[in-house]
């Protein structure tokens, strides 16, 4: 589904990703962990098509196509969804109008007619229930005045509406209360099918109790320095990142 090969990227001339190689197969859940500032969000930004991150080397193939050549909206319509670490507030743009436009753009892309207003509202209602978000939120402007947790839930709600093939969730679990965490996990698990995949960026093993990853990667200083099964997350929770950092340094020395 997604093949990242020796990806290097920089922001404003500063090199952030220093050679990332990663393959995500259909149906897989990958977790990416790693210390603050290691480049996790930058990787997510490259996959979603943020312009200010400059890809300097390497390739990304998604469903057989060169992902890096595509515009952000085309990537979205091809099924890539990014749950932002910091969802932006857009005053004046209502959630309803925003989602309706997005859903219909997806439908058009798939050769379907736009949803009628009533079908759309019904879809909104169903999905809102699914992610248990307060229906009042949907009447407001996009993320405006939402609490931190509400913003994250709103990301999951949008994911449920758009039914992506590859969802990248950047710390969607941080700032959530325990119930919300379960909601997020349910959202993911309900969407999970043999043909779609997830990349879950997180700092906490807790989320991985609900969303069981097939593979766990550790990103450190722009590189994936360790890849293992879900037990790695437990180990990290217990021991922190120091031992990995040491390992990396030793490798460099030897």
């Amino acid at each position: 589904m997604l093949i990242i090969n020796n990806l290097k990227a920089s922001i404003g001339g500063k090199s952030i990703l220093k050679g990332i190689t990663l393959e995500v197969k259909p149906g897989e859940i990958h977790a990416i962990m790693g210390p603050n500032g290691s480049g996790k969000s930058t990787l997510a930004a490259v996959l979603a098509g943020r312009e200010f991150v400059e890809v300097t080397e390497g390739s990304v193939t998604y469903l057989g196509k060169n992902l890096l050549d595509m515009s952000p909206e085309d990537r979205a319509k091809e099924g890539i969804f990014l749950g932002f670490q910091y969802p932006i507030e857009i005053p004046g743009v209502s959630m309803v109008n925003f989602m309706k436009t997005a859903v219909n753009e997806h439908r058009k892309h798939n050769g379907l007619d736009p949803l009628s207003a009533s079908d759309f509202l019904k879809l909104m209602r169903d999905k809102k229930e699914l992610v248990e978000i307060d229906s009042k939120l949907a009447n407001r402007s996009v993320n405006e005045g939402f609490s931190g947790g509400e913003k994250k839930k709103n990301e999951i709600f949008q994911m449920a509406m758009l039914e992506p093939k590859l969802a990248i969730l950047d710390e969607t679990d941080s700032g959530l209360d325990i119930d919300a965490l379960r909601v997020v996990a349910n959202g993911v698990n309900k969407l999970k099918r043999p043909d779609n995949s997830f990349i879950v960026i997180t700092h906490y093993q807790r989320l991985l109790d609900y969303i069981v990853p097939d593979v766990v990667h550790v990103l450190y200083d722009g590189r994936i320095v360790k890849t293992a099964g879900r037990e790695l997350a437990l180990e990290l929770e217990e021991k922190g990142y120091d031992w990995i950092k040491k390992e990396v340094e030793n490798n460099v020395l030897s």
Partner: peptide
């Protein structure tokens, strides 16, 4: 904001229009 809308599959022209409308609607 433009990127956020695009990342949900809304094309740039439409996204820009929505943002300008939102701008005025405030």
């Amino acid at each position: 904001a433009l990127f956020y809308l695009q990342s949900r599959g809304i094309n740039k022209r439409e996204a820009r229009l929505m943002l300008m409308f939102g701008f005025a609607h405030e």
